[in-house]
Simulated assay, not measured.
Amino acid sequence: MCRWLAYSGSPVLLEELLYKPTNSLVIQSKHSRLGVETTNGDGFGVGWYGGGQTPGLFLSTEPAWNDRNLRELSAQVAAGRVFAHIRASTGSAVQQTNCHPFRHGRWLWMHNGVIADFAAVRRDLTLAIDPVLFPGIEGSTDSEILFYLALSFGLSEDPPSAVARAVGFVEETGRRHGVAHPIQMTVATTDGEVTWAFRYSSIGRSRSLFHSTDVSTLRRQYPDNAVLHDLSADTRLVVSEPLGDLEGAWREVPESSCVVVLKGVEELRPFAPVVS
């Protein structure tokens, strides 16, 4: 389906996240180890927070491994909060407006998974979106509809509750249409200050998701690893699959969980859909 990463910490060049790790996101675009598809070549996107009021976005329908502009940009742009996503389409068109991350104001959103039988439920889901927000929808994916449902249910006030209500509505709608397992997802969203990531599926067998461990602990374990000593103590990553094989560096996010990353501290919470 897709692979993604959410980074927060000391400012780093994008290439340090996208190209240099042994299992970088660009490597995963051709050779994913844990994804449903080995190849994720239906476009990519990078979102980062710089000096502007809204995060920057670079989206492309090119495969990540084959985009010269991404290579050039990644060698020049540094940021302390980065969302990056490589796409394997589940049926919607390969076009820039369908590439993640999606943006609304200060918010970024990216998704790996699927709303099952989307064609059958799309109308009902779309009609639940706040009419004020509706003009912001640019693409045709289930992922963007899920984002705008979460926005409609109060993402800016209480992200975990808003996502729980959005997922609950998707499940309720899907089951009204005879869909046994309406949603499969790992989702990440941020307002530029906090990152929230969710792992959930109606069937209870969700796509892979991991978070990094404390950098100071890893420094003590690997005193000769120069990369670890260049990162600030508050550096954290949430990823679809580990970026490398360093023992102890990654922990799997449990099934039906939300991980909250704020100022270098991650908190795991249970996650369950809510039907309003």
Rank of each mutant, 00 (worst) to 15 (best):
G41L: 06
E172F: 08
L13D: 05
S201L: 03
A128G: 04
R205D: 05
V77H: 04
R33W: 03
V114P: 00
T141S: 15
L146W: 04
G154N: 13
V259L: 02
S201F: 03
H229E: 08
D42G: 09
S89N: 08
I27P: 00
L243Y: 02
G80N: 03
K20E: 14
C2G: 14
H111I: 08
D230L: 11
G113P: 01
L151V: 04
V215L: 13
F44G: 08
F210K: 01
S208D: 07
D67E: 14
G45N: 11
L70W: 14
I183K: 00
M110I: 06
L57H: 13
E171S: 07
L125Y: 11
L25W: 04
F169W: 05
R81T: 11
N98D: 06
E37A: 15
L218H: 07
G80A: 01
V132Q: 10
V82P: 02
W107T: 00
W250A: 01
L34Q: 12
T141D: 10
D67C: 15
I27S: 07
P11T: 06
Y19F: 15
I183Q: 01
H100E: 02
Y7E: 05
V121N: 10
G178V: 10
V77T: 11
T90L: 03
A226C: 10
P254M: 05
S10C: 11
P131S: 01
H111C: 09
F169M: 09
E252W: 00
H85A: 02
E172Q: 12
P101G: 01
T61G: 07
E157V: 12
A119M: 11
G168V: 02
E252K: 02
T190L: 07
